[in-house]
């Protein structure tokens, strides 16, 4: 079963086992600070911004053109930025670590 770790802005680690759905849904279900998911995952609100830890970047894959366009104008945005509502949890991502960017 897949596990995901969120690192909050204060450096607190929230580990979720048996994670299902997209990372924004998982984070909001577990009250991860800084992930609000206001728009429900349609790429509109930008309240689900994370930095993917470098070793996971390749497996997570590229942001879509629309998502990239949004991220370009977000605060604290860098090349590891993603809107985590666009990252669907899969077996392949078991163990993934992301940092909350907001």
């Amino acid at each position: 079963m897949s596990q995901v770790t969120f690192i909050s802005p204060q450096g607190e680690k929230i580990v979720v086992k048996n994670a299902m759905g997209n990372l924004m849904e998982i984070a909001t279900e577990h009250d991860v600070e800084g992930i609000e998911g206001n728009c429900g995952g349609v790429c509109s609100c930008g309240t689900c911004h994370v930095w993917v830890e470098p070793e996971w970047l390749e497996r997570v894959g590229q942001a879509s053109e629309i998502e990239r366009g949004i991220l370009n104008f977000e605060d604290n945005s860098n090349e590891r930025s993603r809107l985590c509502c666009q990252i669907e949890m899969t077996d392949d991502l078991d163990g993934i670590v992301v940092k909350v960017a907001n």
């Binding site: 995952g41 349609v42 790429c43 509109s44 998502e67 366009g69």
Partner: peptide, 13 residues
């Protein structure tokens, strides 16, 4: 069912 839908009806920034 539009998704993604990066509308900015609520503003931005």
């Amino acid at each position: 069912d539009r998704k993604p839908n990066p509308h900015i009806a609520f503003g931005n920034g």
